[in-house]
């Protein structure tokens, strides 16, 4: 299990990186944290002839937080984003999702942007981006462009990025005021890719009625699948929301498949169970958010 030979570049400017990558054409690959790419290279499932190591590029290792959301540079490691208290306050779903990504040692090296570009339909961070309606900033030979999450994920391990483009950052918008989020999943072992996972965002108005709710599903569709739950739950207070109707909406949309770890039926079942759990947790978080800081005791037990 040793990788094939390749030509190695470690440019120190983004322009150089884009140029080298463009020159390499279809044989070129970007190396970020390597936590997905190098296992594949070690197994010779991937054998790029040219590797452009972006780890020396300046300025890409920063997390920028403003009132609108969080911008995550391409060299920000999962761990650094997880540890960023401001980012966690602004977009709590980041930390909620990151804690489910592999184990800390992998998160110490792997990048959040790399994970999104890798576009594994079982990965958590693509779902976070998709659920929040975020976007990717990508740089190519013809300049910089922004690609919305809905256009970004086109298939398993496939994205809307063109050959020769480098992702520079990911932008995670802050959910609307009164929102709460949650990420729940069932994996075989701790740290494994999930058999099914659901990220949810629930928004409440001043009367604590649900005004918006969405879920995003991993491991049950070719891409992180966002399902709008408004039809099932909008207008209800969390305690009396019809979560099984929400689960029905999900059931209609997911396309689970059998594999050695779980049958399609079981995954579909988990999608239902986790829809209810995720929405309940997100609503709970929204209630806390709406109530502001301080002790809070509104009963939402009925939702479980």
């Amino acid at each position: 299990m040793k990788p094939s030979a390749f030509t190695y570049h470690a440019p120190t400017s983004l322009d150089d990186a884009v140029r080298v990558l463009a020159e390499a054409g279809p044989d070129g690959k970007v190396l970020a944290g390597g936590q997905s790419l190098i296992p594949m290279m070690n197994m010779r499932l991937a054998a790029p002839a040219v590797l452009v190591d972006i780890n020396r590029l300046p300025g890409l290792d920063t997390v920028r937080v403003d009132t609108g959301g969080v911008r995550v540079g391409a060299l920000v490691r999962h761990t650094d984003l997880e540890d960023d208290a401001q980012a966690a306050r602004t977009v709590p779903l980041l930390r909620q999702g990151l804690r489910l990504v592999a184990h800390p040692v992998i998160r110490n090296r792997g990048t959040t942007v790399g994970s999104i570009v890798h576009a594994d339909p079982s990965a958590e961070m693509p779902a976070v981006l998709a659920l929040l309606g975020g976007s990717m900033e990508v740089r190519g030979p013809s300049g910089t462009r922004s690609v919305g999450a809905a256009d970004f994920f086109t298939g398993p391990l496939e994205t809307g990025m063109a050959e020769g483009e480098i992702a520079v950052s990911a932008y995670f918008p802050r959910p609307a005021p009164g929102s709460g989020t949650a990420f729940v999943e069932i994996a075989r072992r701790s740290g494994d890719y999930a058999m099914c996972g659901v990220a949810a965002v629930v928004t409440l108005d001043a009367d604590l009625r649900i005004t918006a709710a969405r879920c995003c599903y991993i491991s049950v569709a070719p891409v992180p699948l966002v399902v709008d739950m408004a039809e099932a739950v909008v207008g209800a207070v969390p305690a009396s929301a019809d979560l099984s109707a929400a689960a029905d909406l999900a059931a209609d949309r997911i396309e689970p498949e059998d594999d050695i770890h779980a049958s399609a039926d079981y995954r579909a079942h988990l999608a239902r169970v986790l829809t209810e759990r995720a929405l309940a947790e997100a609503a709970e978080a929204a209630l806390r958010e709406t109530a502001g800081p301080g002790p809070h005791t509104t009963g939402i037990g009925a939702m479980r």
């Binding site: 075989r188 058999m195 779980a262 049958s263 039926d265 079981y266």
Partner: peptide, 8 residues
């Protein structure tokens, strides 16, 4: 026995 098998 896996959770999937127990489910079935």
């Amino acid at each position: 026995i896996s959770p999937s098998e127990l489910f079935h």
